[in-house]
Design a protein around this nucleic acid. Sequence first.
DNA 1: AACTAAAATGTTATAGTATTACATTATCTC
DNA 2: GAGATAATGTAATACTATAACATTTTAGTT
Lengths: 164, 164
Amino acid sequence: MEKAFSHHNHQKCQTSAVAQARSLCEKEGVRFTKLREHVFALIWQSHKPITAYQLLDQIKDGDFSATPPTVYRTLDFLLEQGLIHRINSLNAFIGCCQPGNRHTGTFIICEECEQAEEVTNEDINKVIKSVSAQHHFEMKRYVTEIYGLCPQCQANAAHQGASA
Amino acid sequence: MEKAFSHHNHQKCQTSAVAQARSLCEKEGVRFTKLREHVFALIWQSHKPITAYQLLDQIKDGDFSATPPTVYRTLDFLLEQGLIHRINSLNAFIGCCQPGNRHTGTFIICEECEQAEEVTNEDINKVIKSVSAQHHFEMKRYVTEIYGLCPQCQANAAHQGASA
DNA sequence: AACTAAAATGTTATAGTATTACATTATCTC
DNA sequence: GAGATAATGTAATACTATAACATTTTAGTT
């Protein structure tokens, strides 16, 4: 699959994410049921984090029973398997770009188009570990959420400003 | 005021936080009303982030009308003035240790005692900025929440393990 | 195929977090 | 004190998440 802020064929991006998730679940010996696959595919319909209740509305359109526990249970499973992440500041969920490689997350989130991209950077890890050590704090996990404007929205804003 | 994970006289810590907030509000020309002061003091009653509804329950014990808008409006004011922070992963609020110096936050949060401490570190800023730049992302603000064990709780756990 | 244990899903109710909209009161400026 | 603005009061509702228990599906065994 591809990164949010790079042009790509999203149909293929989504399909490949689903295929990879299926394969990882097989490897782990856990079930990638119809419901789980459906929810996972819905999450991957775009690179915009989606809330549990938005998912719920979409599930209702399909063949599945749809109440909050349905979706929260499925989200819990996907989170446990490291297939998705939760963006705390948005109460929303997004597909993981490096599943199978359990990690703690850093996200860049565009305030304009609302898309989010997971970034991997060893320097962030190092700094967080170093800061924790300085405070004699035993770090277990962390999350970093970076807000701002993605390249496309910066360009749009500039164009907007120029033409206005 | 003092840091969460350092032994200190918390009564003094709270009092000085309130005094500093009052002085900053005067400087900004905004009103530090009875209600705002009361809520701010409640937030500073400990270094444990507190939720809006926990505050609400405590406000009810006092002289103020107490409904959700009361507390959320007050929290919004305190957030805008940079006097408190919101910990997204906890839906909870905590006093700011460097008010007046508008900044974006990094927190270390103990999973055991649930206290949180705001940390200031220029390296984190640098790395976040650098990562944003690498992705051609225009960073506006960020938040980092680090989970783990504070020094005291590490010591308690070790002692627990030894005696068990 | 039938049996069983475990996992997954269905269903109802409720808890916890936050906002909207409008009324009233307090404060500031003139 | 009148008028404008800011702050607070009040009622209703929207959004997010979990608990508890019933039923169905699946995988492994007989």
